[in-house]
């Protein structure tokens, strides 16, 4: 039986205007991802991994070629439609957590659900479940400034996972964490990947993350240099 692609990238290029000319960040990328992958875009700074992650996350659009994410062609999406895709089916995890500092842990995790017009009871159940996944139920009333870096990133994971998205995009999620916290974070994400079949796509150059990847796509100068599946 043929597995359907969750993400299909065909001859995708991305140029940015620089002065009078243009800078090519991505050049004719061809990639496919299936459901449940735990994969990563790996490469040095400037290799194009964040640009590709942004296009997959419908935060940017390709200059040439196409990226089809969960059945939607990114270049053809309106602003509203791309917001809908992010709201309903994608989760984001950032390097610097980006929690809203005046809201509690519970409220930060609840925020994406408010956009989905869920009932208060449904929201509560979903938030408590997500916080349980990351082991932060004792901290639900804490505010971000009272949390450690590791705890903050776990809140960010719960926020990304609370709506049970099909795909989570994580840009350098362990860059601000020490080895022990990175280990806990990655273990948590791996467990969610196994239990919920959520796909994870990382943009990273952190060796700690790379060790966990099941598929490593190396980018260099905006092109795929190597695409390898790693057996564990």
């Amino acid at each position: 039986m043929e597995t359907q692609n969750q993400i299909s990238i065909n001859k995708l290029s991305k140029h940015f205007p620089v002065g009078g000319g243009k800078f090519t960040a991505l050049k004719e990328i061809n990639l496919n991802f299936v459901e449940g992958e735990f994969s990563g875009l790996v490469g040095p700074s400037g290799s194009g991994k964040t640009t590709l992650l942004n296009i997959i996350g419908s935060l940017d659009s390709p200059s040439e070629g196409e990226a089809i994410v969960l059945g939607r062609a990114i270049s053809k999406l309106s602003t509203k439609a791309s917001a809908k895709l992010r709201k309903e089916e994608l989760g984001f995890i950032f390097q610097s957590y980006n929690l809203l500092p005046v809201y509690t842990v519970y409220e930060n995790v609840e925020f994406p659900l408010l956009l989905l017009n869920m009932s208060a009871t449904e929201r509560k159940n979903a938030v408590m479940e997500a916080l349980d996944w990351v082991g932060l139920i004792p901290k639900i009333k804490s505010k971000p400034p009272q949390l450690s870096g590791g705890e903050s990133q776990r809140v960010a994971i719960a926020r990304a996972m609370v709506k049970k998205p099909k795909l989570v995009l994580a840009d350098e999620p362990t860059a601000n964490l020490d080895a022990e916290n990175s280990f806990h974070i990655l273990e948590t994400m791996l467990k969610l990947n196994k239990d919920l079949k959520t796909s994870f796509l990382f943009a990273t150059h952190d060796e700690k993350v790379i060790k966990y990847l099941k598929r490593k796509i190396s980018l260099a100068d905006g092109m795929v240099a190597k695409d390898e599946y790693i057996s564990k």
Binding site: T79, K84, R86, K87, F92, L100
Partner: peptide, 14 residues
């Protein structure tokens, strides 16, 4: 602007 970026990423419309 930072907060706006986050809200956009989460899927709130402009």
């Amino acid at each position: 602007y930072g907060e706006v970026g986050l809200r956009l990423a989460i899927g709130e419309e402009k």
